[in-house]
């Protein structure tokens, strides 16, 4: 599978009050086509700087960044990328429909069904009814939806999102997650940052932990949680209630917390009793592992 995005030994430092701050310290990672890559880290860890160097908004970095094989310094490399910032600043004197048409023009995309295409994306984000209202009259959540529609309307190969679900209500979050999953199914790659680890677990195939400008690890959520936990929650069916069961979910369906070492013997026992497994999940959440890693790094708070 070819790479959508590749960072090779990328470093960027700032000088603040005479002191040098390493915003990015020798970062290397890659995102494959069709992959959803989440970037997680505390405030000031370097998440937004990573996006800014990727998009060449900050261009004086060390190392190499390539987007679909093209140098990120080359403006044409952004032809396949669309970006949604954390707090989208959209021309407030325009309407959502005009903003989407503007995006098509800036990407040099000409379509005979321009209006229909833009309305389709506004409908996808449930803002078609506001298509002709000025942006300044929309709520923060709706502006966020316009920003997402503005990114999707150009049908990018790689979608770059900075905190994509912030500012959205639960319905909006669900809609956006569904759209992102559809986008992934259609072959798109996503790079996103988030503070909300539950979102990362839901969306990302793989993610990177960044802290103090250093990439601590890149793993899949399941890999990381499995590595940092030796306990599992097992849901199972049984004809009779087993001894010391943790929780009865409903008649004949139970949940048990079991350590990795106990697991083989426990499974044999369940099999002998005629029960069967519904599912097994790690007992530790991504969030607790995140805190654990940050604790190991000497970081106490997010």
């Amino acid at each position: 599978m070819s790479l959508a995005l590749e960072f090779s030994s990328v470093s960027k430092s700032f000088t603040k009050n005479g002191a040098q701050i390493d915003a990015l310290n020798n970062i290397s990672f890659s995102v494959s086509e069709r992959e959803v890559f989440g970037f997680v880290g505390p405030n000031g860890a370097g998440k937004s700087t990573t996006i800014k160097v990727m998009l060449d908004v900050i261009s004086d970095y060390k190392g190499n960044i390539s987007i679909y094989g093209n140098d990120a310094h080359d403006a044409s490399s952004r032809r396949g990328i669309a970006y949604v910032p954390e707090s989208p600043s959209i021309y407030e004197q325009f309407t959502p429909l005009e903003i989407l048409k503007m995006a098509l023009r800036m990407y040099g995309i000409r379509r005979t069904d321009e209006n229909k295409h833009c309305m389709y994306w506004l409908e996808q984000f449930s803002i078609a009814q506001n298509a002709n209202r000025k942006i300044r009259l929309l709520s923060k959540g709706n502006v966020q939806r316009v920003a997402l529609a503005h990114a999707m309307v150009v049908e990018p190969r790689l979608l770059v999102l900075d905190e994509p679900l912030s500012g959205l209500d639960p319905v909006g979050r669900k809609d956006v997650v569904n759209i992102l999953q559809d986008y992934k199914q259609s072959g798109g790659a996503i790079f996103f940052t988030s503070h909300v680890l539950h979102d990362v677990e839901r969306i990302a195939d793989r993610f990177g932990f960044i802290n103090h400008g250093k990439l601590v690890t890149t793993r899949s959520p399941r890999e990381l949680v499995t590595e940092h936990s030796d306990r599992f929650i097992v849901r199972f069916h049984a004809t009779q209630q087993p001894d010391n069961v943790a929780r009865t979910l409903r008649e004949g369906e139970y949940e048990q917390d079991i350590s990795q070492s106990e697991m083989p013997a426990w499974l044999d026992r369940l099999n002998q009793q005629g029960g069967h497994i519904i599912n097994i999940q790690p007992a530790t959440s991504l969030e607790s592992v995140f805190f654990q890693i940050l604790g190991e790094q000497g970081m106490k708070t997010i």
Partner: peptide, 15 residues
């Protein structure tokens, strides 16, 4: 001032 520039700079065309 309004940080529109951050979006403007990310379009696929030279500054």
């Amino acid at each position: 001032d309004r940080r529109y520039i951050l979006a403007s700079m990310t379009y696929p065309r030279p500054r």
